[in-house]
Design a protein around this nucleic acid. Structure first.
Lengths: 198, 198
DNA sequence: AGCTTATCTGGTCATGCGTCCAAGTCAAGT
DNA sequence: ACTTGACTTGGACGCATGACCAGATAAGCT
């Protein structure tokens, strides 16, 4: 990460490093552990630098959240298009579970934190808008089929997919040993096929 | 002369009051806001009392979690038995949404907090065991039907119900204006009926 | 009565927090 | 060569935090 860019204002690199460091800590240790000191330490810069580049800690947090959502979008579009919905569901699930557990937790923490804290208002909504958009895009190939056969159409299905993935992920985080999340997901795929979606 | 007002020792009542106060704060302002001082203040006792009754803040937190789970169990069993699964689903959803938003958030915070913090290890697992048990109990009347028709049986259905409710609830918290959560739930009920569960 | 034990209380401790600032550094522009 | 302005730095500020303690008080027992 130290590679050149000598022509550009060096400062921006520091700013980016701080965001990256904050992201690392949020994923590894949680939002609560992301203090200004820890972040500065992780980035290898003195404490004072943090407040030169960010007016407040919440400002930094907002940038971290934006980066997190960008990664979610990237992960969502990266998955290829399998033949059937249940295969698609399986790959999406794999993408989720392959994702670092810390990042999964961070996304949940981000939601609750945003709902509680006025300083981060609206962030949770953007987060779930992003989720639903990604899901809608993922089922795009079956859109016509779904719209014809399912109440609420592909929009409702996208929302349901997000809900199921969220619930399954959270349950898997809470109890990694339990087979319940995987079973639930398999059942859900069966229900979809039952409804004529494949 | 120190201010008189010699109060009589209340014993265990003080302990219970502290747990109740902590619960109030956790639901109203979040786990992060539940500091020992805030709790003592809410309970109307001096700060020192907190550490007389609880060895550490985590100890108090554990009691709060236990109380929270007890309430969840009570809410789950309180609901009456409707005629069909989709009606049952609707009443469960109402129970969830009727629940204070603060409490819903608190339960999610509890999960993430427990997974992150070694001091509260195992709590999240107990939480989701409780959820699944409640769900299994809720669909008990249809157990035979479900076991015969659905892959994974009523155990898998219970897990899926929990996942859907969790996901839908979280989405509703993140964006109270959006109709997506309700749509998703309606679609899910339709999928169940499609599978022959009523 | 005195003695013992449980409960309560105000104050103190070290630590960590977000924020701020005055002085320092250094490359680019004149 | 000198000024400018972006960038960096170490230290400081006031406040909140979890934990702890020695002394005060009340209740129960002999």
């Amino acid at each position: 990460m130290t590679s050149g860019a000598a022509r550009r204002p060096r400062g921006e690199a520091t700013r980016a490093a701080l965001i990256a460091a904050a992201l690392t800590i949020v994923e590894r240790d949680g939002i609560a552990a992301a203090t200004t000191r820890q972040i500065a330490d992780e980035a290898g810069v003195p404490l004072g630098t943090v407040h030169y580049w960010f007016a407040s800690k919440d400002d930094l947090l907002r940038e971290v959240a934006a980066q997190l959502l960008t990664q979610v979008r990237a992960d969502a579009t990266r998955a290829e298009s399998p033949a059937t919905v249940s295969e698609r569901l399986a790959t999406v699930f794999e993408t989720y579970t392959a994702m670092d557990a810390g990042r999964q937790l961070a996304l949940f923490e981000l939601t609750t934190h945003s709902v509680r804290d006025d300083g981060l208002a609206g962030l949770a909504r953007e987060q779930y808008d992003t989720y639903r958009a990604a899901a809608r895009e993922a089922i795009e190939p079956w859109a016509n089929e779904v719209d014809a056969q399912l109440a609420g159409g592909s929009s409702a299905l996208a929302a349901l997919l997000v809900a199921v993935m969220d619930g399954v992920t959270l349950a898997a985080l809470a109890d990694p040993e339990s087979p319940a999340p995987a079973e639930a997901l398999r059942l859900f795929a069966g229900l979809l096929e039952n409804a004529g979606i494949r």
